[in-house]
Design a protein around this nucleic acid. Structure first.
Length: 601
RNA sequence: GCGCCUGUAGCUCAGACGGACAGAGCAUCGGAUUUCUAAUCCGACGGUCGUGGGUUCGAGUCCCUCCAGGCGCGCCA
């Protein structure tokens, strides 16, 4: 069982592939105005053959038309300005889409399982600091990618790699020794740690020697100093607790919480192994990995050599990259067969991830991975995203230039409450709070996922909390309209909807006549492709954009086509079916983005 | 200094892999509701796709120059 548009696409592609003698010929969607479903451009092949593309398209159309089987969904091929346009039997196609929608049910859009595991690193905050709006992107982009890749059929493991180690904890240890307050740490741990963190940096600016004190404190922690260990446990525990509370508001659940500190030992061993294999070397007292110029692998020109990566400081301690590398190794060993290691991390780390990529490549070549299946280059896939800054400048915890994530989510819910009060004054208070949560947080998530992840974002309240136009509430509203119509349908109609028969399908198709209805159903048919595209490009915004178009199609349909008051039984059933399917796809699509849909709003 | 990213309508953004006349949202103006929730719909206005070259039958998309903004560049994470 598969999706009808995927099939047509594959058929057209294979025709063109045979004709042009290339494995992946271009098959595209024609401009909106065209009634054609797909189009094959002939320009390139015409050039190879030294012929005119218009003539070629003419010839190909005639040839392919002759070869058409009676049972084919394709109705005809038609040349147009150097393209071969593909026309399908519209009614049959609509019937097949309806059948797909019925047969797949709640699974509509999903693809069969692929025996490949993708490990996604996302969120991964430093837990010594409160979450800011800066942490939002990794978390929601990562979660959306996980959902989308799962729908696409991959086995996906999500890992939150918590930064609970490193010199920053040395800073906190030192600061607590100097200015700490036991009572405050017990009562308001996050607040207190933040104060200490800020205070440390203020003092260190005047007296840089404090940085050495911090490094020394971290070294004592690393060597198992009892006092440091106990304090660190407390910092870590209370931070984690606060952190989990905030993330839960976004509806994010991690498959695994991995702690950086747990990789300390493995990281130390790794340095020795890398030295033994000649991958790492000593330099100025530190251990580094030098890179030959080989990134990016796809580049035809050799890029300049990269700066080396320090994996052991001259004081003998490891660094974040060392522990990250150790963790990557563990991921590969534990979740094999690993197809990809994804890292949803801000774009400022581009250089670092290219170094990590190269380091893993070098390790792969020297047999570091026990499982022989890891023989393809490029297992690491970096998913960069643009920075979030404030109108006043770069986010800085140290300098108090920060919008806390909780603060943003509170404001989102508050504004949503206000709007509900205005638009739907009859809604009871407790229902309102629930709906406001879904709408407000949804708006925040959608504001981010609806644009290309690589773009920088200047934080703006009104943009993050848009409730009209291309926004989560617009999509949710469309889904709510569907739900409300269904709720008002008669019990008999609902029963027929729940138990659709094969014989109903042709009867329904006959009733789907208005351009708004046809457009809506056609768009529903493209949902699987939208998921596939978003997965292939690691681009949640491709799915967001599809869903926006679907909601717009529903709104137009809603305005023009009466459902419950349709003239005939058959028409009512057909339209109810469209409404049910649209609601289902919107809900499902939003869920893939990590956004909940309320029943009313 | 070197490297990477971004630059499309007044504002915020789609236009991946070069392809049929550059599309949305917001804002502005005008219209639509005795009818399934108007957080909606329809229409108007609005763009020499940062600049200048080049490649190509064809460039917003690829290459080079320059301009503007952002980010990064051995012992932070």
């Amino acid at each position: 069982m598969n999706y009808v548009l995927d099939r047509i696409y594959a058929d057209v592609e294979s025709l063109a592939a045979t004709e042009f003698g290339q494995p992946n010929p271009e098959v595209r969607r024609p401009p909106k105005e065209s009634e054609a479903i797909y189009a094959v451009p002939c320009f390139q092949y015409a050039k190879e053959k030294n012929t005119n593309p218009i003539k070629l398209a003419d010839g190909l159309s005639a040839k392919w038309n002759q070869g058409l089987q009676a049972g084919s969904l394709i109705e005809r091929f038609e040349p147009a300005r150097g393209y071969v346009n593909v026309f399908v039997k519209k009614k049959t196609l609509l019937a097949r889409i309806l059948k797909n929608l019925r047969d797949f049910g709640e699974d509509y859009g999903n693809y069969p399982e692929i025996n490949k595991t993708i490990v996604v690193d996302y969120c991964s905050p430093n837990i010594a600091k409160p979450l800011s709006v800066g942490h939002l992107r990794s978390t929601i982009i990562g979660q959306a990618l996980i959902n989308i890749l799962r729908a696409r059929g991959y086995r996906v493991v999500g890992i939150n790699f918590l930064g609970d180690w490193g010199t920053q904890f040395g800073k906190l240890l030192y600061a607590f020794e100097q200015w700490g307050n036991e009572k405050k740490l017990a009562e308001e741990p996050i607040q207190h740690l933040l104060e200490l963190y800020v205070r440390f940096h203020k003092k260190a600016k005047i007296n840089p020697a404090l940085e050495d004190d911090a490094r020394a404190a971290f070294k004592r922690l690393q060597q198992g100093g009892e006092k440091e260990r106990a304090l660190w446990q407390r910092f870590r525990g209370s931070s984690l607790e606060a952190f989990e509370k905030t993330v839960a508001r976004l509806g994010v659940k991690f498959d695994h919480n991995w702690f950086e500190s747990e990789f300390e030992e493995r990281a130390r061993e790794l340095v020795d192994e890398l030295l033994a294999k000649g991958i790492a070397e000593e330099s100025e007292g530190a251990i580094i990995i030098r890179f030959k110029p080989l990134w990016p692998a796809e580049s035809p020109e050799p890029p300049p050599a990269q700066p080396p990566l320090v994996i052991r400081k001259s004081d003998g301690t490891t660094l974040y990259p060392t522990r990250d590398l150790a963790s990557a190794l563990e991921r590969i060993e534990r979740f094999q067969p690993v197809h990809r290691l994804l890292y949803a991390v801000a774009s400022e780390q581009t250089l670092y991830f290219s170094q990590l990529w190269n380091a893993l490549e070098e390790m792969r070549k020297r047999g570091f991975f026990k499982h022989a299946k890891i023989n393809q280059p490029g297992i690491l896939k970096y998913i960069p995203f643009g920075m979030v800054s404030l109108p006043t400048g770069k986010i800085s915890t140290r300098e108090g230039r920060i919008v806390y994530l909780d603060e943003l989510l509170d404001e989102a819910e508050r504004r949503a409450q206000e709007i509900i009060k205005e638009k739907n004054p009859d809604m009871p208070k407790d229902a309102r709070a629930q709906v406001a949560r879904k709408v407000g947080i949804g708006a925040v998530i959608y504001a981010d996922l609806s644009q290309d992840r690589i773009k920088d974002i200047v934080f703006d309240w009104s943009k993050m909390l848009a409730f009209e136009g291309n926004s989560a509430p617009y999509l949710q509203y469309a889904a709510v309209r569907c739900a409300r119509i269904l709720a008002k349908a008669s019990p008999e109609d609902r029963k027929r909807l729940e138990e659709p028969k094969d014989a109903d399908i042709p009867r329904m198709v006959a009733e789907i006549e208005e351009p708004e209805s046809i457009e809506l159903l056609m768009h529903l048919g493209r949902f699987p492709q939208a998921i596939a595209e978003a997965a292939e490009r690691y681009a949640p915004h491709a799915l967001a954009s599809y869903l926006y178009d679907l909601a717009a199609a529903l709104s137009r349909f809603y305005t023009e086509v009466p459902v419950l008051k349709a003239q005939t039984d058959a028409a009512r059933l057909a339209r109810l079916t469209l409404v049910e399917a649209t609601g289902r796809v919107l809900r499902r699509g939003l869920a893939l983005l990590g956004i909940e849909t309320p029943e009313e709003m």
